[in-house]
Amino acid sequence: MARIDIQHPHSKTPAQARKAIESVAKKLSERFDMDYGWDGDTLNFSRSGVEGKIALLANNLQVTATLGFLLSAMKGPIEAEIRRVLSEKFD
């Protein structure tokens, strides 16, 4: 199993950051049949082969995910796509 751990700075208000994270989660849910839900300021997500969370901190987002055996081989492209989306939504 592979693990992804990304910290990404942001300058959005908590409400703006939460809205952007929610937007990304909805798209992922529709595209990949992913379940997600908020627990305070942390969005937890999961689907077969992936489990993770996005923690909304004051000036930073922390994305962590554990990839199952089959998706572990695609860790590089998955991590690159997460970084691309974070840059698009939070830079």
Rank of each mutant, 00 (worst) to 15 (best):
A15M: 13
A15E: 15
Q16S: 01
Q16E: 12
A17T: 05
K19T: 06
K19S: 10
K19Q: 14
I21H: 00
S23Y: 09
V24G: 07
A25W: 00
A25Q: 01
K26A: 10
L28R: 13
S29I: 01
S29V: 02
E30I: 11
R31G: 11
F32Y: 15
D33C: 09
D35S: 14
Y36P: 01
Y36D: 03
Y36L: 03
Y36G: 05
G37S: 08
W38D: 06
W38Q: 04
G40V: 07
D41N: 09
D41K: 07
D41C: 05
T42Q: 10
T42H: 04
N44F: 15
N44P: 07
N44V: 14
S46R: 15
S48L: 13
V50K: 02
V50I: 15
E51C: 14
G52D: 05
K53R: 15
I54Q: 04
A58E: 14
N59R: 14
N59A: 13
L61N: 02
L61E: 03
Q62I: 07
A65Y: 13
T66Q: 13
T66F: 08
L67A: 01
G68V: 02
F69D: 09
L70M: 12
A73F: 13
G76W: 11
G76F: 12
I78P: 01
E79H: 01
A80Y: 05
A80H: 05
A80E: 08
E81C: 03
E81T: 05
I82H: 00
R83D: 05
R83F: 05
R84W: 03
R84S: 08
L86E: 00
K89A: 11
F90R: 02
